[in-house]
Structure formats: C-alpha cells, structure tokens
Design a binder for these strands. Structure first.
Lengths: 243, 243
DNA sequence: CTGGCGCACTTGTCCTATACTTGTATACTT
DNA sequence: AAGTATACAAGTATAGGACAAGTGCGCCAG
C-alpha cells in the first residue's frame, strides 16, 4: 500500500489522538515541532493536519495552535444490575440489618459534599444467605432524614424512601485494610483487604443528597465494568491517583 | 502534552477550589500573590481567573479581590481519562519499565479466555514521577505477539502495537493482599491491600485478544465511576459476588 | 466616641515588546 | 504531483510595566 508522506503522518497523529493521549481541547505540538519530529517540512505536516481537520478530529486557530476537537463521544460505563437483583435471581435471600440509626454532626467529608451540619447516619449490615457481605453507612441530610424511621430503613431500600427523584451518582472504588469494627461485622481478620466504595448520590437537579460508604470483604466481591467501545488505552479506565 | 500557561493555572485553581479547600465566598490570594506563586505574569494569572469566572466558579470585585462564587456550580466531576492522560496533564512524567518479555504456556485462566496454548507474556512496571504505581502483566496470543519487540513494548502503549482494531473491554476490579513479588516492586509491605484489575480486551469482532492484570497499591489509587443516570439502587452498581 | 482622611492593597484597563503560532504565498527539487 | 525550503503577514500568549478606580482599615483631629 503506497501512500504519501502526509497521509502517513496524518495516520500517526490520528492514532495518537484517538488513543486518548490528548484530552479534548488540548494543544498539539506546533507545526514546527511536528515538522522536526516527523522530519518533514512544515507544509507537509500542515497537509496532514488539514486532513485531520476535515475528519473533524482537530481544529486550529491562527496564532494559537492545533487542538483536539470537542469531545468524541465518551462512553458511559455500562452497568450491571444491582447486587440485590443478582442475589434474587440466584435464589439467594438477602437481608438488611440496621446496626445504627441516629442523627450526628456531619463528618468533614460529608459536610463538604452535602453542605449541612447535622445528618442522619444509618449503619447497616447486608447479608446474603445469612452471610454478612457488606457494611454500609449512609449519611443523609437532616431534612430528608426527618421523615424516616428505623423500621422503614430496615424494610425498604434507601432510594425508595427519599422524597426526591434521584439522578446519578459518582462511585469511587478503593481498597483498604479492614478496620477492627468492620472486620468483626464481616467475619474477616483485621487488616485483610476490603473494597471500600464511596458513593455520592445526586438528585435529578444535580444536588448531592446522599453520601454512602460500602465496605466489602475482598474475597467475596469484585466490581465488573463493561466498556463497550474502543478504549483509549489498555490501562483500566476510571483509575486515578489519590494524594 | 502542550498547554498554554493560563490553561494550566486555571486547571490548578479549579481543582483546588473544587476540592473544597475554599469555602463559598472565601477570598482567593490576590493576583499579585498568585502571579508569584505560579511564576507567571499578572496578565496570565488574570486570564486564568477569567476562565474560571466564565465557568461560574469564582467572581471578583474591583478593589476587593477574587472569591469563590456563592453557588459554586456543583459540576459533575469531569470524567477522568486514562491515567496516562491524567499524569501528562499534571505534568508528571510517566515511564514504563519492561521487567519480563517472553513466550510462555498460557495459564489456565488466560487459556480459557484467549483459547490458545502459547502466549506472549509481558510484565511491566509503570512509574509516575519515578515512583512505581502499577505492576502490569499482559498476555497476548502468539500470533499477535510474534511481531512485537521488547523495545517497542517499552516505547509504545500496547494497544498501538496490536495489528487489529480494538473494540471493547471488560474490567474486573477486586482487592487482594499484595504478594511478595508485587509488594517488592511497588515498594509496599507484603500483605498490604492492593487493587487488582483484570481486563479482557476484545477486537471489534468481539474476539478477546488481550488479557491483562493491573496491580495498584491501594494507598495510591482508586477507581472513579460516573453513573449519569438514575439508578435502581443505592448499592454500588457493577458489584458482584465471586464464587 | 465619631467622622474624615490617607495609606495600603485590590481589581480593571491600558500600553509596549518579544517570542511563538498559524495562514499564505512563492520558488525550487525530486 | 508531492515534497522542500523560505519568506512574510496576521493572530496569540506572556512578561513587565503604568495608571485609574474601588475597598478596607487604621489613625488622627475634633
């Protein structure tokens, strides 16, 4: 397959951009720099870039530079059903046991997210087939929590009890060593690895209405994420370094 | 990755504000002070601040200063791209060090997925700013691996080197205790919690073409999943019980 | 104690100058 | 036809100023 120099360069740049090495809006190296990198004249590099512009992949502004065009469709992470649904499907009985139900001063992290000082804290142990598999703590603004009863929380899922329509959520998954209290509840040794999931649930308005922490023993659980589209990188997406 | 100075500064300030370091209404350091801190001229700092004002994150009053807007738009956390992109964005140099590169008999799990007996196994250590943050093992069918060189693998991301177009992937996130070899490479104590991510990457045809395992020290990393739509349950989605 | 003044500091707006970028054109080589 | 080399125009980013205008605060005279 014979191809011109600028086609080759365009191809190289295309894969580089599609690989996600450059986020949307990011500047590409200047024509001069690319010219040097590809050992081609500026005119040739320019033709390559113009090809990519025709494809809608990049754009340019005089005196500014070439930049990656507005976001190519970002895949939403497909999600599997909830764990309760899975359990029910497999004929395993699930049970919720409320350990604690009280109004408390909001911990700093919760206050930062929800923006209120007093919150309802509900701590729950989830069991599958009689075996504990999750310790869940939910923090809920006082205004929503005021209408809830301990019995209601034990009987129904939390999301059914909220007085607002829930929109989306942001879920952060990390691993830590089990603290003594958690280890005790889950029946695992202290210090054994657990999956710790923080979830910020928002109303349709976007306002955060719930903060929850879910702790799972690592030997029992794992997260599965299906990424339907081509990925920018082989590295796990969604990962980030914490400070 | 190239970026204008004011974009960089705007980004830095944005994350600082969104992180909650500044309460609403709180004064930011003066332009002069920021100018000194970022070693940039006042004009540049100003442009960065103006970007944030356009975003509704901050506001200013002449003679008074810049302050965090009364209602800081609770933006959904911008979805994170790949970790390489994040690192590049923060100006942190990332490095890949190939530890092992050889053809081996496929382990049972890999054989089950890829359906071949001999595979190329590449073990890599990823570093951010000189600090190890991931041990990655990639298993690749012999037919695709035959064309690869150790140098190429060290230089380029794996997905660029595959001779086929990649379709989607399935990502499984779990936590385990660090094995001795991993702990050694990552510089963490043996038995400390690590995030273990298995990834099955498929070609556009749906045929699995890569199996990879990524091990991250838990204290450095976490996964963030943004779930834009209403959820059936407050429980973390994607979670499943392993057998 | 109070009102008013001035000082220090802030943002808002302008300027010049330099370096770098894309846009465009032309001449020349392979 | 494709690529190289060169030159110039026009736009942008940034540094480093200067100055106007607004704010907050302490000080001082009354």
């Amino acid at each position: 397959m014979r191809q011109t120099r600028y086609q080759t360069i365009a191809e190289g740049l295309r894969t580089e951009i599609e690989s996600g090495a450059y986020a949307a809006g990011r500047l590409l190296p200047s024509e001069a720099e690319l010219s040097e990198r590809y050992a081609a004249s500026r005119v040739t590099v320019r033709r390559a870039l113009e090809v990519l512009r025709d494809e809608g992949l990049v754009d340019s502004r005089q005196g500014f530079g070439w930049f990656v065009a507005a976001d190519p469709v970002r895949q939403s992470l497909a999600r599997l059903g909830t764990i309760e649904a899975q359990l029910a499907q497999e004929g395993i009985g699930s049970e919720r046991r409320v350990l604690d139900f009280r109004f408390v001063p909001a911990p700093p992290r919760v206050r930062q997210v929800l923006g209120c000082d007093t919150v309802l804290r509900v701590r729950r142990l989830n069991l599958a087939d009689g075996e504990p598999f999750a310790v869940v703590t939910v923090w809920c603004p006082e205004e929503y929590g005021a209408e809830l009863s301990r019995a209601a929380v034990e009987r129904s899922p939390f999301y059914e009890l909220m007085g607002v329509a829930l929109g989306g959520a942001t879920q952060t998954i990390g691993a830590t060593a089990a603290a003594a209290s958690e280890a005790d509840l889950l029946g695992v040794p202290v210090g054994s690895p657990v999956l710790r999931c923080e979830r910020i649930t928002r109303a349709t308005s976007g306002e955060p209405v719930l903060v929850s922490e879910h702790v799972f023993p690592a030997h029992l659980t794992e997260f599965v994420v299906d990424l339907p589209h081509a990925e920018a990188s082989m590295a796990p997406s969604g990962l980030r370094l914490v400070d």
